[in-house]
Write a protein that binds this DNA or RNA. Structure first.
Lengths: 358, 358
DNA sequence: GCGTTGAGAAGGTACGTTTCTGCATGGCAA
DNA sequence: TTGCCATGCAGAAACGTACCTTCTCAACGC
C-alpha cells in the first residue's frame, strides 16, 4: 500500500515528480518555485521531469498552504431582480477589462460576484481581496469582508464611513461644474438635467453639483429623474424634460443612453441640435462620435479607474501599502463635439482638461 | 503543541466550532452540510455555535478535499496587445451577465481569464470547467484544458475539431440569409457587406453565407473588410464601401458599431436612409432604436447563449450530461426598424422569427 | 585531527476540510 | 439471552502543497 506507488487515477502530483526525478518533494517544490539553494542542474532537471509528466500544481493545495489564492472579487451592485444590471455597459466593460488586465499582469485573476448574493457563494471562494463598484452606504457585504480582514477597494467614494482599504473615484462635482460652465460659455441660458432616482453616490454627487451650480449662477433647476436601470424610462424622461413649459436650451444627461434618448426627443419636438438645444451626456460609448450631430460626452476614464483600483488592492494584499496613494481621484475628460458648440460646428474631438493620454 | 487549544491568530476553524459545541469535527461538518444522521437538535445547536463564532469554512480546504472549486472560467480570445478586446461591448456584457447569473443560481462563480495568458495564471486557479468564447481553430488552451479532464463549453461552434464538451451557437448562415432576403424584399437590388479581416468563426460563416446568397441570386458581391478590433477602421471601411463605383443600395454590417459608421458615411455621401440606402447591422445595443432613422439590427441573443452555455457546462461538471442537449443552436432575432423598410417607415419593432420571449 | 562552515537535499508537519470506518447504545424480534 | 439493525457520534486518513528543521558530506582553517 503506500502512497508513492499505486494509483494513477488523477493527474501527476508533486510526489510523482519527485519520484520520477529521483529527488525529494522539497527539492521539487523549491526548484519549481525558485526558492531554496539548488544548483541550476537540479533545477532544470526537475523542471524538465515536471514538464514531461504534465505536472500542474494544485491551486487548492497551494492556496490552503499559503493562504493566498490569487483571486480578486469584482463586485457590482444589484438594481433589479437580475443578479446585477449594468446601467452603463460601456463603462463597466471598459472598467472590467482594465481591471482584469491589470490584475493579470500581477498574477491575479478576477471573480465576478454580485454584491447581494447568497452567503455560501461568497464563502465558497477564497478571495485575497475585493473590488466593489459604487457600494451603498453601510453595505453589509463590504463590512463583513473587512471584518474578516480581506482588503476592499472601491470604485467610487464609499459612503457611510465604510471601512474600506482604499478607493478610486472621479471628482464628479468638478466634472459637472466644468461641463455646465462649458455649456454656459456656448450660450446656454437654461440648462436642464436628466438624472436618476437611485441613491448611488455618482447620481447624488452629480445632482447636488448641478443644484449648487444653478444656485450660484441664479438659474432655476430644471431636471427630470427616472430609474436608471430601466432603459425605456430614459426615453420617457427625456421627453418629459423637453415637454416642460420651462424647456431648457441645454441638457446634461447623467447616463450612457441619454445621448440618443435626448436626440430623439429633440427631433420629436423639432429642436435642432446644437442650434436650439445643446447636448452633453456622460458616456464611454464611441457611437456618439458618429451620431448626427456628434454628441459631446463626459468620459469617466474607466480604464484608468479599473487599473488604479486593482493596483491599490494588490499593493494592500501584498503589504506594499505605501507604494501609491490609498485614495485616488482620476480626472474626467470632456470630449467636446458638435452638440455643445454653437459657433464652430466643425470641431469634433478636443479634450479640454486632464493630462494627455488614455 | 496542542492544536485544539492555542493560537487565536486566524479565523475560527471547524475545530474551534467542534470544541465550543462540545461535539466532534465530524458532527460539525455533517451538521453544516446537511449530511450524516443527526437529530435536528444537534444540527441547530452546531449551526448556532458556528454562527456565534463567525465560522466560515475555508474554501481552499474544501476544494482540496472535494476536488470541486465552484469556479468556472470565462475565457475571451485576445485580439490586440491588450489582454483582450471586446469587439462588441454590448454582446459581451449581456452574455457575461447572463452567464454570471446562471452560474450563481447554481452555486458557481465566474473567473475572467484571457485565452492567451501566462500559464501560471491558469494553473493558479482551480477551475471546475470553462466557458470559451469563439475559440480559434485548434486553440492550445482548450486542448490542454480538455486533456486535463476539465469540461469546456464554447460560445460559437468550435473549429478544427476541438474536443469540447459542448457548444452553443447561433445559426449564422440562416440569420444572414434571412436578413438578406428581408433586404431584397424591401427592394434592395445590390446588397453590400461590411465584414472583418479576422478569422473567427462568426466572421467566416457570415461572410460565406453572404457570398453563397449572392451566387444564388446572381448578384456580384460587394464588400469591404477591416480589422474589427480597431474601432476607427470601421468608419473608414464604411466610407470605402459607399465610395465604390458599384455602390450598394443596401448594406449589412457585421459588427456592433457599423450602424452608426454606415449612417455617418451615408450622410457624407448625401444618401438618405432608407430611401437611398437600406441598413442592417448586427448589434445588441439599444441605441439603434433611437438613431435617426432607427436601424434594423440582428440580435444574437447573448442572454440566452450565456445561460445555455453555463447550464450545459454545469450539467457536465455534475455529471448530468443528458439533462439537455450538448449542442444547442439559439435562434437569432431580426429587429426590424425604419432603416430597412422602404414602404412603411412607421413600424419600429417586430421580431419576424424565433419563438417568443427573451 | 577537529570544529566550523555552507551547500545540497531530505523529513515531517501543518494548512482545514470531507468522509470512510467504526464504536457504542438501545430497541425489537427470535 | 442472543442476534441484528438503526441511530448518534468520534477517530483518523486523506487531499497536495510549502516550508521549517534537520541531516549529510565535503572543504577548509587552525
Amino acid at each position: 500500500m503506500g502512497r508513492s506507488t499505486g494509483r494513477r487515477l488523477g493527474r501527476a502530483g508533486i510526489r510523482d515528480v519527485a519520484a520520477a526525478a529521483g529527488v525529494s518533494i522539497t527539492t521539487v517544490s523549491d526548484a519549481l518555485n525558485g526558492k531554496g539553494r539548488l544548483p541550476d542542474a537540479t533545477r532544470s532537471h526537475v523542471r524538465e521531469v515536471a514538464d514531461r509528466l504534465g505536472y500542474r500544481p494544485s491551486a487548492a493545495a497551494r492556496t490552503l498552504r499559503t493562504g493566498k489564492s490569487g483571486l480578486i472579487g469584482l463586485t457590482v451592485t444589484t438594481y433589479g431582480d437580475e443578479p446585477f444590471t449594468f446601467t452603463e455597459f460601456a463603462y463597466f466593460a471598459e472598467m472590467a477589462r482594465a481591471a482584469t488586465s491589470a490584475a493579470l499582469a500581477r498574477g491575479y485573476a478576477l471573480v465576478i460576484l454580485p454584491a447581494t448574493s447568497r452567503h455560501d457563494v461568497w464563502s465558497n471562494v477564497a478571495l485575497d481581496g475585493t473590488v466593489v463598484i459604487d457600494p451603498a452606504d453601510g453595505d453589509p457585504v463590504v463590512t463583513e469582508l473587512v471584518r474578516h480582514g480581506i482588503p476592499v477597494v472601491s470604485d467610487g467614494r464609499p459612503g457611510g464611513s465604510l471601512p474600506v482599504t482604499g478607493w478610486v473615484d472621479n471628482d464628479h462635482e468638478a466634472a459637472v461644474l466644468g461641463l455646465l460652465d462649458h455649456l454656459a460659455e456656448a450660450g446656454a441660458r437654461r440648462i436642464g438635467l436628466l438624472t436618476g432616482t437611485t441613491t448611488d453616490t455618482y447620481t447624488r454627487l452629480s445632482t447636488t453639483a448641478y443644484l449648487n451650480w444653478c444656485e450660484r449662477v441664479g438659474q432655476d433647476p430644471v431636471y427630470e429623474s427616472y430609474p436608471a436601470y430601466d432603459p425605456r424610462a430614459g426615453a420617457v424622461a427625456a421627453d418629459r424634460l423637453l415637454a416642460r413649459p420651462d424647456r431648457p436650451d441645454a441638457v446634461y444627461g447623467l447616463f450612457d443612453p441619454n445621448g440618443t434618448d435626448l436626440l430623439a426627443a429633440a427631433r420629436r419636438y423639432g429642436l435642432r441640435v446644437p442650434d436650439d438645444l445643446l447636448l452633453v451626456c456622460c458616456s464611454e460609448s464611441t457611437v456618439y462620435a458618429t451620431t448626427d450631430p456628434p454628441i459631446t460626452t463626459l468620459s469617466l476614464k474607466p480604464r484608468r479607474i479599473g487599473t488604479a483600483v486593482v493596483q491599490i488592492l494588490i499593493d494592500a494584499i501584498e503589504g506594499l501599502d505605501d507604494s501609491c496613494p490609498i485614495e485616488q481621484v482620476i480626472p474626467t475628460d470632456l470630449i467636446v463635439r458638435t452638440s455643445s458648440q454653437r459657433r464652430s460646428p466643425r470641431t469634433t474631438v478636443s479634450p479640454p482638461r486632464g493630462p494627455a493620454g488614455d
